[in-house]
Amino acid sequence: MSARQTLADRQAAFLRSVLDEDAPLPEGWGNSQTAGMSVYRGNYRSALVGALENTFERTARYVGEGPFKKVAAHHAIAHPPSGWTIEEAGSGFDATCAQLFANNPEVAELAWLEWAMLQVSNAPETQPFGASEFGPATAEFRDEDWMGLQIEFQPRASSREVRANLSALWIALEEDASADRPDPLLEMAKGCIVSREGELPTFQIVTTGTARAFDAMQSGASYGEAIMLLAGGDPDAEAIQQAAVQAGAMLGEWLNEGLIVGVKA
């Protein structure tokens, strides 16, 4: 005779059966429990696939309903969620798309963009640190202060290098899945920065250098380090000078676009 099962044991066994259709049903179950379990299994899968369809609307339109449901089901099985918010089911979905649509890199990048837009849309409210604040804050800066300048960006803003023609795809996939499709890939790699304009998420296509500089500074790199990143490996004085000019223009754009919420020397 088996040892008495605790509530925790029973719940673990129940959830194993929900997640895995091949898992054995708990001891002592009959036909009525088996019929009920099939409903819970169906609910689990449809809830997760539905959540992924909501989060990745454009990705779903791009690949089509059938293929999307297959990828979504694969993702739900491979990465069962653990957090209390069902939106978390979308975490890592771009990587799943990269794996399953290996010949169409634009699919994973589109999924990344939708996930990044969702993350930034629910971010805490912040006030942009505009040019009118930036001027006085840096008025007394010496060269070394500029080189050590660190920037605080909008919370949950993100960036990456992209090959997908995201601007055109985003518009084409807004509502009608049958609309004319643009070329899915760019001729050369670009960068993409996702941020919030007011309360709405937005994105912009930038140079790969700008995206790398954004990424580095978001991770704590200084303005001086960003200049060296833009200058490339083993730069001469002229390249550093050009990178400094480029960084100044980039900083001005970030200020104007409200991407910056604070600075520290």
Partner: peptide, 17 residues
């Protein structure tokens, strides 16, 4: 109801014994 164990969340309202 219960929805989760320490490992996973079903995001469904699962029945109590």
């Amino acid at each position: 109801c219960w929805t989760r164990t320490s490992a996973h969340n079903s995001h469904d309202l699962l029945p109590m014994p």
